[in-house]
Simulated assay, not measured.
Amino acid sequence: MNKLIGFCAASLLAVISMNVNAADPEPPMGHGRMLEQADTNHDGKVSLEEFKAAHEKRVEAMFKKIDANGDGFIDKDEMRKAREAMHERMHERMEKRQGMHDQMHDTKPQ
């Protein structure tokens, strides 16, 4: 059971960290912006509690997105589908980047 919980938690974190698209509740945060928003006591540092609070909203949104049937649980099928969707988005981004790279090289004078 602990292995399953660990696997689900790791998978959820992987999906959360890799899911950077327009459907996200907010755009990914750069280091400076994350520090600024998460540092609620303005001491120039982010504690674990501040970090958790800053990401709680995003984690909840991702959980709800993965929990396709809305039952409050993520099962193997939902996790598989979320992982497949993540891989598809990654593949699309890679193709787009490759196309941009190819276009840059095609337009360079020789």
Results as ranks from 00 to 15, higher is better:
A54R: 07
A22E: 14
K96A: 14
H31M: 10
A68T: 14
N21D: 11
H42D: 12
M79Y: 02
S47R: 04
G30N: 11
E84Y: 08
T40I: 12
F51A: 08
R80S: 09
H105S: 04
H87D: 13
M90A: 04
K81V: 13
V20P: 00
D77F: 03
E49L: 14
E26Y: 07
R83G: 09
D39E: 02
F51D: 00
I5Y: 02
D39Y: 00
F63Q: 09
A61V: 00
E56P: 01
E26G: 04
F51N: 04
G99N: 14
E60V: 12
K52L: 14
T107L: 09
M34I: 06
D77E: 15
G30E: 09
N21S: 12
P109Y: 04
K96T: 08
T40G: 02
G6E: 06
L13W: 08
H101A: 10
M100I: 14
G32T: 06
R97E: 14
H31S: 09
V59Q: 01
V15S: 03
N2T: 10
M86G: 05
A68K: 04
G44P: 11
M62P: 02
A10E: 11
E92R: 11
T40H: 03
D77I: 11
V20R: 10
H42N: 13
S17Y: 04
Q98T: 08
E88T: 10
F7D: 10
E92Y: 05
A54Q: 15
K52E: 08
A9M: 06
K57G: 14
A85F: 01
R97Q: 13
K64I: 04
E36Q: 10
I16D: 06
E84T: 09
H91N: 07
D43P: 05
E56F: 01
K65G: 00
E95R: 03
K108Y: 07
F63S: 07
K3Y: 08
R33V: 12
F7K: 05
E95T: 14
D75F: 01
E50K: 02
G70C: 08
E56C: 03
R33S: 04
A54E: 15
F63P: 05
V15R: 03
K3V: 14
S47C: 05
K3T: 15
F51H: 04
Q110D: 12
R83K: 06
A23D: 15
L4C: 03
K57H: 07
M18A: 15
K65M: 10
M100F: 10
L13Y: 10
D106Q: 13
E95H: 09
E26S: 06
E88S: 11
H31L: 14
L48I: 15
G70I: 01
M62A: 13
C8A: 13
K76L: 11
H31P: 01
E88K: 13
K52W: 11
D106E: 12
M18H: 09
A22D: 11
A14H: 10
D24R: 11
D43E: 02
D71I: 00
D39V: 06
H42M: 12
M79Q: 09
E36R: 05
Q98E: 11
K96E: 15
A54T: 01
K64H: 06
K3E: 13
G32N: 12
V20L: 03
L4F: 06
R93L: 05
P25C: 01
M34R: 01
K45D: 02
A61P: 06
L48R: 03
L48H: 11
L4M: 05
N41S: 06
R97M: 13
I16V: 15
T107M: 14
E50T: 07
F51M: 12
K81G: 02
H55S: 10
E60N: 07
